[in-house]
Write a protein that binds this DNA or RNA. Sequence first.
DNA 1: CTGTTAGCGCATTCAC
DNA 2: GTGAATGCGCTAACAG
Lengths: 354, 354
Amino acid sequence: MAKQVKIKDIALMSGVSAGTVDRIIHNRGNVSASSRKAVEAVMQKINYRTNIHTSAISIKKTYKLTIVMPTATEGEYWGFILEGIEKALAEYSDLNLKTEFVYYNQFDVYSCAVLFEQVSETEQDAVIIGPTFVEETVKLCSVLDKKSTPYVFVDSVIEGTSPIAAYSIDQHACGRLLAESLSLMIPKGAPFVVFRSKRLGNLSANNSVARFEGFKEYFDGSMNAKKLSTVPISMLDPDDNAVAVKKLLEEHPDLQGAVILNSRGYIISRILEELGNSQVHVICFDYTINNVKELRKGNIDMLLCQHPQTQGFLAVNTVIKYLVYGEKTSAAHYLPIDIVMKENVDYYQDMISF
Amino acid sequence: MAKQVKIKDIALMSGVSAGTVDRIIHNRGNVSASSRKAVEAVMQKINYRTNIHTSAISIKKTYKLTIVMPTATEGEYWGFILEGIEKALAEYSDLNLKTEFVYYNQFDVYSCAVLFEQVSETEQDAVIIGPTFVEETVKLCSVLDKKSTPYVFVDSVIEGTSPIAAYSIDQHACGRLLAESLSLMIPKGAPFVVFRSKRLGNLSANNSVARFEGFKEYFDGSMNAKKLSTVPISMLDPDDNAVAVKKLLEEHPDLQGAVILNSRGYIISRILEELGNSQVHVICFDYTINNVKELRKGNIDMLLCQHPQTQGFLAVNTVIKYLVYGEKTSAAHYLPIDIVMKENVDYYQDMISF
DNA sequence: CTGTTAGCGCATTCAC
DNA sequence: GTGAATGCGCTAACAG
């Protein structure tokens, strides 16, 4: 390995002092044009990387980081994201970080609007955003852009914003994978049903749409496409769901598969169990307590999962590297789509054990 | 966050000097029993974590790390492990690490014995071991134990050794997952075949055995168990394999599934393709170039993968943390068993992008 | 065996 | 606008 170039070396080579070099690197101003020119010339030739250790030691600034996301319940999706965030923050405990966590109700646009407004008015060095509502998010981001405050997305990418990075999964690919899994499980041409969320107007619904697109695309031109029927499920009316499923089974006694485009698969699998139906293969999304329980019982066959912890972890990592070390990452990161079944679920959760 | 405890604090609390505390933390000797006792008592009460940054800049010692494993080809299993190792080493580039990579032929006990002997005679601060042959590994480890040289396993855990950590996957669970996947793909009672490696007397074979146990266990008592037939495949005689598969298909024209207990699934899937058979579902192990190619072509339906990069990465991490910061980890780590199919393969490889 | 102390390389700050 | 001085917490060498 080549010996690390130090700030002192650059100073020497460009005929200025270390302090001046530092001021240039960190854009702190108070540098004469001639000094800047000399230093920049040297920097071009030389591959300088700030030494994170010495840097971390001597940084006195307290960085303020705001995390805005839907209310996080332990063991559920946003809870896992939070886990990853906290894990990463723990690794940077030597840094002087001040974090503020604020949450909105993901089922309530208003709570989101109010909170985002609040965040807009607060001063901070960076923001990690877990978006749900498109319009509100775009608005928040435009304010942040104006203040040149960097922000990172977890869970989704929002059009019309310019985050320094976004960690999510490819929803379209999720849909295709869902279709591939289903078609491996049921005979060609066998009837199946697609359950979609009733909720509209927010991003979850958007994700759902992208998944559905991918799902349909996979089947395009194949026989199965004709058998596709979709049923909306409701979070609020459990009885409605039971009735709908029952009706469906009566109409299609040979139903082989049920896929749910969101994380509410446990609702359907429970109904199927109650109806004594064990013939229908069930696939849905996300590693949640309820889904895992159903997976273990054998009522759900397969879960397609993202790894929310990793999203949170990487989001923090990116922000710190950007703020403290001036490192930049590419903007869009699609994380792996994990397949979890009964026999590998035990080993899934500990993934980030480092 | 609670304020970080410093070495000086511990020294104060236990009535000794900072130097003594440091000697105790790093097992550098030259400490009286009474001092040790006092300090350890305080350490128990207090949650001390060495500040990696100040530590890193002041360390003068050059740690020597030896990595022994089977010859690593890029894009294959051991190549990925190496990737993870190098990734981790890059993160510790500020540390004064001296690494020595040595490789043996995983198909040749003798080359392993010779190399391990050599490693035994070299002095180093820690060793990362990728084992293949049990006896040779046990012998090496007993030498290391005597010298109190810490070592970490990747890929497998070997009985009768005491590594500071081991990163592998649960082979038995792999077998069960294989069975679960297969039974989702083929109708109940449909005939399938199990391909096993011919090679014996080494650990790969051991892994294979464990996988087979898990596989059988899953089917215990079910109808499918009766349909189980196993065929050995040979790495060396491709023609033999083709003949065997052809014969198998003639005997079982309704064959629905083929599982391969090792990473040579591409050999079988290619033969099936050549024979024009697209009805048999193929599942095998490991993300290798050949397997992925067959997966993309649709000849292999599913790959069960470990994430070798992560194994290598964590192995290095553990060693460094142990050596430099005196941190200990629990010994056995079973990593996730990943399921890779055509539609999620694109997002699998970048997993360690941090 | 133990306490003391000189760096480690950088960001910051304060005289100039 | 600039350069030199200071301090971060830890390690390692040295003097007792």
